[in-house]
Simulated assay, not measured.
Amino acid sequence: MMTDTYKELTPLWDYVADDVMGGVSTGQARCMHVAGRRATRLTGVVSTDNNGGFIQIASDLRVDASGWTGIEIDVAGNGETYDLRVRTDQITRPWQSFRCSFIAAAGWHSVALPFAGFTAHKTDAQFDPAQLRRVGVLAIGRVFHADVAVGGLRLYC
């Protein structure tokens, strides 16, 4: 039985965009202070031209998240909807994931995303939190200006 309510995760974020597959979305990820808090901030313009449509920050995490309820993320943004996507060892293709959307409102706030709320995308695999290996925050799927800062990421029960 768990006695802790949270387990802090320390992602090392990398920037990835749709240009890896021919898209033309542009952006950047920078470590900076946002509203008084250290964060990784993803900004840019998502374009659906040339079969594109995303920018993201992603981090490899090898963690056994079994026994936890979900992922809580501290975010500040521009009021747009973003995706938190996770990959497990069962995922074999880059376009496969388990995903959950959230709104990054202005000002810092925490968003709790229960594992039960993640949906499989282009895979028949069942989500197994014991095999969590990658997490990403994505601006995706429509033309818009992305601006989302991530100041914390943790498992919660």
Rank of each mutant, 00 (worst) to 15 (best):
G23E: 05
H145L: 09
T48D: 09
F102I: 09
A130Q: 06
H33S: 15
E80S: 11
W13H: 12
F98P: 03
E80D: 11
I55M: 01
I57N: 06
G53L: 11
G53Y: 02
V63A: 12
L61D: 00
L138D: 05
A29S: 15
F118G: 06
L84P: 00
F127S: 04
D124H: 03
D19C: 03
D60Q: 14
D19M: 05
V86K: 07
S25W: 03
G79C: 10
G77Y: 07
R85D: 08
Y15D: 02
V20P: 01
V143D: 15
Q131T: 15
K7P: 00
D4G: 02
T40H: 09
H33K: 15
Q56H: 04
V150F: 08
Q131H: 12
V75A: 06
C100R: 12
G36P: 02
V45T: 15
Y156A: 10
V24F: 01
T92R: 15
A106L: 12
R134E: 12
G27R: 07
V148N: 05
D89C: 09
Q131R: 15
D124V: 02
R85C: 07
A112L: 12
A17S: 15
T26P: 02
H33Q: 15
Y6H: 14
V45S: 13
F102K: 03
D74Q: 11
A39H: 01
L138K: 14
L155E: 02
M1V: 12
A116C: 07
V16N: 07
V148A: 05
A65W: 03
A116N: 11
V75I: 10
C100I: 06
L138S: 09
M1D: 13
Q131D: 11
V46P: 03
R62Y: 01
Y6W: 13
L42I: 08
T40Y: 06
S101G: 09
V75N: 08
S97Q: 10
D64M: 06
